[in-house]
Design a binder for these strands. Sequence first.
DNA 1: TGAAATGTTGGGGCG
DNA 2: ACGCCCCAACATTTC
Length: 483
Amino acid sequence: MSERPVIFWFRDDLRLADNPALAAAHASGKQLVIVYALDEQSKEARALGGASRWWLDKSLRDLSERIAAKGGRLTLRRGAAEAVVAALVSETSAITVYWNRRYGAARKIDERIEKSLKAAGVGAESFNGLLLAEPFNMKTASGGDYKVFTPFWKALQASLVAPEAAPEPRSLKSLGNVRSDEIADWRLHPTKPDWSTGLADEWTPGELGARKRLRSFLKDRIDGYANGRDRPDHDQTSRLSPHLRFGEISPHQVLRAAIHAQEAGEAPARDVQKFLSEVAWREFSYHLLYHDPEMARLSWRREFEEVDWRTGSKSELRAWQRGRTGYPIIDAGMRQLWRTGFMHNRVRMIAASFFAKDLLVHWRQGEQWFWDTLVDADEANNANGWQWTAGTGADAAPYFRVFNPVLQGKKFDPEGDYVRAWVPELGKLPNAWIHAPWSAPAPVLAQAGVTLGDTYPEPVVDHGAARKRALAAYKSSRPTASA
DNA sequence: TGAAATGTTGGGGCG
DNA sequence: ACGCCCCAACATTTC
């Protein structure tokens, strides 16, 4: 009779390297039950969007192969996490369950599981595998929670220790005869239609794809990042976000590699520091989410729930979703999203501002669309990004800051390359009008083969008028404004 | 990690 | 030469 095994439970940490909970489970010397649970039942678990399901499918298949190559086996189970873990403990007589901690609404699930495990005399060991600094360890001098990014970032930098990477197990010995679902049965990959070809062209989900992306970023694209990151017509962002989202790479791995590149003189300090501050925005988002688990649904500053948000007409919402607003920079971004599961960060801000301000529809509906379509949809980052732009979040843009899609386009896509890449019907329009086709003289439009309202839409709203409408609506929601 | 409205300044045209 | 006006350029304020 073999001794009792331990369970390692994969969640948003789909990697073998620098995985503290996995390393600890492995170090126990016991046989492993390595499980991923697809939880579509727990009330705290938000259903994955389509793009995320596609990514998860690829990442799990890759992970499963990597585990098999080390002699182990990945067990797949579907159901409420609490029930899955309880069943596995019962089936295998496991003595301990290991996992890396979560910080959003799902941590309630983990608390329940930990409690019931301990009540049953089973060990529950949790670790930090997702963040540079866990929210409960970050307090201001006066003992409060950070609400402003810059002091948060300073405190984070002061406290940063890049611990040695948790060792990747050389081999994995799994307990035999543990039933597993077939991943194909989970139907994570889209069918009828399969819209994922644009995603497959763009991405390599999995731990090795993540490391490759990090390496190539630090080698080829970080030089000039501090300014270049704002240019959607350049490809200078790291594109690590989906890999971080699924934990295929850890923020510590990113931190160590970036610092190493800086110290080796391979990357300018200014660019490295700017990049790390973006990683820190992810940390800040988790910090905020931890202290407000409803952040994905309710304005962090609750008074903005009182804004007289419009419902938005079906055609208006559809125009935004599918990139037919008549504002080229927004349409380019929304089409990039639809096709590749990604949108350049600068354009996310412009498109989100247009949704929450110009269309004046509650930001949560825009957040939901991004949730469904982004491969990097992350409960903390997505909510915080939307709330930042909508002006409802912590340390957010002030409500009266309204992006002008024409000016933003001219400033950050001056040659119109980004627009032409995603809105080919405007391809022949000269630079002077590429961001505002409606202002082009009729002969110019004719020459470019553009017929407004036919080959390319008229603007769904007039930005000047929409801006005024938004300012009035936001202003009237502020408690101080009515006095 | 804005933009628009409003205010100020100063050069140049012109009577 | 002088004052007046115009208006671009820049600065400040407001949303």
